[in-house]
Each structure stands twice: as structure tokens, then as C-alpha cells.
Design a protein around this nucleic acid. Structure first.
Length: 589
RNA sequence: UGGGGUGUCGUCAAGUGGUAAGACACAGGAUUUUGGUUCCUGCAUUCGGAGGUUCGAAUCCUCCCACCCCAGCCA
């Protein structure tokens, strides 16, 4: 990788940092942080933030902290902190010894609150949640001051201490900042700093019964850690004045909050709230269902961390709401996997082919290239015999225009093997379905080249029937049928456009014998089909299960789709079929 | 009808007064024992709209329009 490649694309945040550096702000120091709340699993939207924060730290010789924003014990669990850590690591980032928790600062945060009270900038309020809401006013009308706003410093100190000591009921009192109930920015209308909540915390246990809220704890945690640039998403723009207020009132180190647009991708959803519904209502099998945009789902699907990082690099960072085309994500995995995935042959929907002129008991080992993009990956042998399977869709009894594959009388190449010509077919007498093909092979074309220079329009993948292994293959498609599921007027019901065909399970697939014992998580390109990953949960030596990561680009599919849309005459002449083909009608099927 | 933001190709996105990068997608073509890969070529006389300043505007000014966020003791 060249230097230019490794530099994050130019974005407005880099511009700000570069200027700060030039002005020697923060003594040339750069410190960022990734601050997840441990209340759910990471998804690709988080990956954007992780890549940004860790990427900037790396680029400018700074550091990036991993900080769990664990101020709401009723929603947070250790299970989530563990999964988040492993996802960040999997993505390829290392926080070294800079693992922090907001809960590490509870005592210090409490002292900051006391300072605010002493300055007359915070007070204990006895209004109920309902009343606080009523007193807040509306977007267009100012709020009313709480009757408790004028309590003395002494009384506030006493009350706050007793809140901590557990003398009051949950929800009976809160600590509030004393700012301005008439502020046009609702965040500044005496926001709540602490609430009473007798819930055990995953790290501090029952030591505390009061917990700080986001605005207060986040800005101060950033300050405590010496964060220089605190990057967050757009919806916190209105919180910035409050972020700044705490730091100014307390006169402590003042990081700069910068907001950027969160990631949206077409044909999926990226909000914790919505993802939870998909899991809980059984629309997917879990957080790591390969259709989920979670890092766990993408990993199981076969996405590489490199491809996700590349994607995050390419989408850029800006302030406008946007929706990135899913096709870009798919492009990124294809590009990565094209370079590194070993090629293999697998037949998804097998069609039996008998090579009439190939000896019954002969088996040949044919050399196949593991990756044409990378000769160092070497070669392997695949067995060839009289009975094979090819892809059902690679044969058409009545081929449409531009269909180059097998048809009665046609000759094609079997990859790394021989040219074969279709001379007959067996049909199910009930359904008329073609259930077996009879072909002849040309012994002169071993390896795939014809000595007489004869050309063939296409190369098919295949497996030797007796040598092949059975496998289950799961074909995944977009989770939603609409580019923007959140568009539903009835925004509650983004699920109305769930794709009913997002998963198709194929159970009688046949793959080449070399795949026996394939390691769970390993990725392959099934030639001509796509990239597949051995499932990490359901696959075993005796019962292989593959997940399709993404298809290969498919020019034929595109042509066929266009033909169907135009209603073009897609059939060839039936006369040629009659002339060239022997048709065996089934009697034993 | 309060405040805070944002509007550049179908989708992302550079551009910061000197005459519209790049990527994906799409469309052609070449090469190809994957209809894959790779390689060429094409793809915004125009930057939400209207005025204005200027020799010169996507960039500055004015007005207008559209969209997003904020009324949790969530983050």
C-alpha cells in the first residue's frame, strides 16, 4: 500500500484537525475516542465511527480510546461489552491499554456535580418526570422555572448527598443544571444531570443508586481523558452548547465536539431500535444472522474486516444526511475476496450429466488453479469421471438469444476438463422436466484446449458425481425490498417491506471433494457463482453449510432481465433441436 | 409560527473567488479456460431556486424553497 492509499480521504474533520495542528492547539496532540453504550451489538454504522476515530488517531500520530458509556445500568450488560470489544478487535483496531468506562469516573463526576451546586449552577428538583416535561415548555414557548430552582446551595448539597446515600425513592428527585428555562435550545432548559435509580450496575454493582446522564458525563469524561476531538453524530448538534457549558462552568480541559452524519445503507436498517425488532420478532435468526448489518452478521456472512474498512474509507465523512448504495459494500467485498479467496467448484442445483463415451470405471485427476489472481496460491487436483453434475441453469432445452451455455447439440467446455457436446436428455414423463443429460466428450481437449483451434462460447463449472460432497448452501439477498425501509409513512412499520426471499436454503448442493473438512469461517469463490463462507455455527465436517456472501457480477443475469423486461423473443428455433438431439423419454423416473 | 443543521451526477463525495476531482452504479468496447477479473470509452456547460456583488461565483451577499435534528429522570 502506498502512502497516498493509507491516508484517509480528505474530509472536513481532517481539515479541522490539520488546522488545529498547524495552530499547535493541544500542543499538537490528537486524541479521539469510540464511546459505545454497551446495550447492543455493533453494526456497520458503528464501524464508520470506529474507522474514523481510530483512523484519525493513526493518521495524526494520536491515540484513540475505547470508552464504554455505561451510565444507564438498566439497559447495559457485560455480554455487550465483551461482544463490542471482540468486534472492534475483529475490525482490526487496537486500543492498547486505553480501555475505559464512564463508570470509572462516577466518583469524579459526582464531585463535579457538587462543584456545580456550590457555584449555584445546579439544584435538586423534586418535580416528577411528568411535571418536568410540563415545565419545559414547547418548541415555540419558553418553559417555566421549577419552584425548587431557588433552593440554597446548602440545601442542595445536603439533598444531593442524601440522594447518593439512598435516602430517597427512585424518581423522586433529580439534580438539574441551572441554565435558562427560556432558552430556544430545549437542551439548555435546566437539563437533568443525575437521576435516582436503584439498579445494580454491571461494574459498580450496588455502590451507586444515582447515575449521571449523557450530556453531563460525556463531556466531562472526554475532558478527563484529554480527548482533543470528540466526534459524534449529527443528532448531538443541539447538545453541543450544553457539552461546552459543563466544561466552561467547571473550568476544565475543553475538548471540541464535532458532528458528522451517521451511515445509512440502502435495503437495510441501521438503528438499534429497528434491529432489535427484527431479532425479537423472529424476522431473522439472531443478531448474527448473515442478513443483519451487524458486524457479527457480516462476519458470519463472509465479509472481511478489510472490505468493511475499505467501505468506510470510500463512503467519506460529511454532514449531510445520506444513503449509501448497498452495491458499494458489495463491491468492496468482491474486490477483496477476488484477490484472496481460493477458487473451488460447487454446483448449487445439480443436473446429472452422463458422458456416454467416457469409460465407466475411469477417474482422472485434473489440475485446477486455486486463484488466477494469485499464482502463489498454487493448484489442486479435481477428479473427473463419467457421471457429473452441472448447474441446472447452465442448460436450456430451448436456449434464448445470447444464451451461450449448454443446449441440445451444443458444445461447451468443462473447466479444466474437456469439451463436451449435448447429445441427449432424459425427461421426467410426468413433468417434462429435464432430469439428465447425455453428452460426449472430446478426448483431445483434455485440460480445456482443443488442438484444432475449435472455439467454444462458454466454460461451465462441474463436479464429479461419485466424488462430490453434499452441502447445504444458504443464498442471501437484501433484507428489504425497498431502498429506504424507514420511508414507510407509517414509520413504525418498516417491516412491511421486508424481503420474503431474503434467504433461500439449498440442501442438495454438490461441492468438490477438496472441501471436506473446510474450516468454519473460511471463504471460497465458487467459480461462476459468487463468494461463499463456511458457516461458523451450523457447518460440520459431516454436514457442510455455506453462506453466500455475495454473487459474482452476473452479465448474463442482466441480459436476461433486460430481455424479459423488453419481452424480446427469447427462443431459438425448435427445428434445430429436433435435428440434433436424441431424446430419451423416461420410463423409470 | 423557536432553535440548530444540510442542500454539487442515479448513489456517496472533493471543491473554501479563477472557470465542476474521484468512487459506486449505469452504457458501450477489448482481453479472458470464471458471461468473473483486468483494460479502454462514455456519463453534471452545471452546483436546491431567484436576484445581486465581481473581469470572473458551486464558492461572497440577499431573499425564497426543501429536507433532517431537538420538548427521555435514553445515548
Amino acid at each position: 500500500m502506498t502512502k497516498a492509499d493509507s491516508i484517509p480521504s480528505h474530509n472536513f474533520i481532517c481539515n479541522i484537525i490539520a488546522e488545529d495542528l498547524k495552530a499547535n492547539k493541544n500542543e499538537g496532540r490528537v486524541a479521539t475516542r469510540f464511546p459505545p453504550e454497551p446495550n447492543g451489538y455493533l453494526h456497520i454504522g458503528h464501524a464508520k465511527s470506529i474507522c474514523l476515530n481510530f483512523g484519525i488517531a493513526a493518521e495524526y500520530g494520536g491515540v484513540c480510546n475505547l470508552r464504554f458509556d455505561d451510565t444507564n445500568p438498566s439497559k447495559e450488560e457485560v455480554e455487550y461489552v465483551e461482544s463490542i470489544k471482540s468486534d472492534v478487535r475483529w475490525l482490526g483496531f487496537d486500543w492498547g491499554d486505553r480501555l475505559f468506562y464512564t463508570s470509572d469516573y462516577f466518583e469524579q463526576l459526582y464531585q463535579y456535580a457538587v462543584q456545580l451546586i456550590k457555584k449555584g449552577k445546579a439544584y435538586v428538583c423534586d418535580l416528577s418526570a411528568q411535571e418536568i416535561r410540563e415545565y419545559r415548555g414547547t418548541l415555540t414557548e419558553p418553559g417555566k422555572e421549577s419552584p425548587y430552582r431557588t433552593r440554597s446551595v446548602k440545601e442542595n448539597l445536603d439533598l444531593f448527598e442524601r440522594m447518593r446515600a439512598g435516602e430517597f425513592e427512585d424518581g423522586s428527585r433529580v439534580l438539574r443544571a441551572k441554565i435558562d428555562m427560556a432558552s430556544p435550545n430545549l437542551n439548555m432548559r435546566d437539563p437533568t444531570l443525575y437521576r435516582i435509580r436503584r439498579v445494580a450496575h454491571h461494574r459498580t454493582g450496588t455502590r451507586w443508586c444515582i447515575y449521571p446522564l449523557y450530556d453531563f458525563s460525556h463531556s466531562l469524561s472526554d475532558s478527563i481523558e484529554g480527548i482533543t476531538h470528540s466526534l459524534c453524530s449529527l443528532e448531538f448538534e443541539g447538545n453541543r452548547p450544553l457539552y461546552d457549558w459543563f466544561l466552561d462552568e467547571l473550568n476544565v480541559y475543553h475538548p471540541q465536539q464535532i458532528e458528522f452524519a451517521r451511515l445509512n445503507i440502502s435495503y437495510t436498517v441501521l438503528s438499534k431500535r429497528k434491529l432489535v425488532q427484527l431479532v425479537e420478532q423472529g424476522h431473522v435468526t439472531g443478531w448474527d444472522d448473515p442478513r443483519m448489518p451487524t458486524l457479527g452478521g457480516l462476519r458470519r456472512r463472509g465479509y472481511t474486516p478489510e472490505s468493511i474498512r475499505d467501505f468506510c474509507e470510500r463512503i467519506g465523512v460529511a454532514k449531510r444526511d445520506s444513503m449509501v448504495d448497498m452495491a458499494l459494500l458489495e463491491h468492496c467485498v468482491r474486490q477483496d475476496l477476488n484477490q484472496r479467496a481460493p477458487r473451488v467448484m460447487g454446483v448449487l442445483r445439480p443436473l446429472r450429466v452422463v458422458i456416454d463415451n467416457y469409460p465407466e470405471d475411469r477417474v482422472e485427476e485434473l489440475e485446477a488453479i486455486n486463484n488466477p489472481e494469485d499464482p502463489s496460491m498454487g493448484t489442486r487436483n479435481v477428479p473427473f469421471s463419467r457421471v457429473l453434475y452441472i448447474e441446472r441453469e447452465d442448460f436450456r432445452e430451448d436456449p434464448p438469444k445470447k444464451f451461450f451455455r449448454l443446449a441440445p447439440g451444443r458444445e461447451v467446455r468443462l473447466r479444466y476438463a474437456y469439451f463436451i457436446r449435448c447429445v441427449g436428455m432424459v425427461k421426467d414423463e410426468q413433468t417434462g422436466e429435464v432430469v439428465e443429460l447425455h453428452c460426449t466428450y472430446d478426448p483431445e481437449t483434455r485440460g480445456g484446449d482443443s488442438p484444432d483451434g475449435r472455439k467454444v462460447k462458454v466454460t461451465l463449472h462441474w463436479v464429479s458425481a461419485p466424488h462430490s460432497l453434499e452441502a447445504e448452501v444458504r443464498l442471501y439477498d437484501h433484507l428489504f425490498v425497498k431502498a429506504n425501509p424507514s420511508d414507510e409513512k407509517d414509520s413504525a412499520d418498516f417491516k412491511t417491506c421486508l424481503n420474503p426471499n431474503s434467504l433461500e436454503t439449498l440442501t442438495c448442493c454438490r461441492v468438490e471433494p477438496g472441501l471436506a473438512g473446510a474450516t468454519p469461517g473460511s471463504r471460497y469463490q465458487f467459480e461462476r457463482l459468487g463468494y461463499f463462507c463456511v458457516d461458523t455455527k451450523d457447518s460440520s465436517d459431516g454436514a457442510l453449510v455455506f453462506n453466500r456472501t455475495v454473487t459474482l457480477r452476473d452479465t448474463w443475469a442482466k441480459i436476461e432481465k433486460a430481455q424479459k423486461q423488453k419481452g424480446v423473443a427469447v427462443h431459438g428455433s425448435p427445428l434445430s433441436v429436433v435435428r440434433n438431439v436424441l431424446i430419451y423419454l423416461a420410463d423409470e423416473h
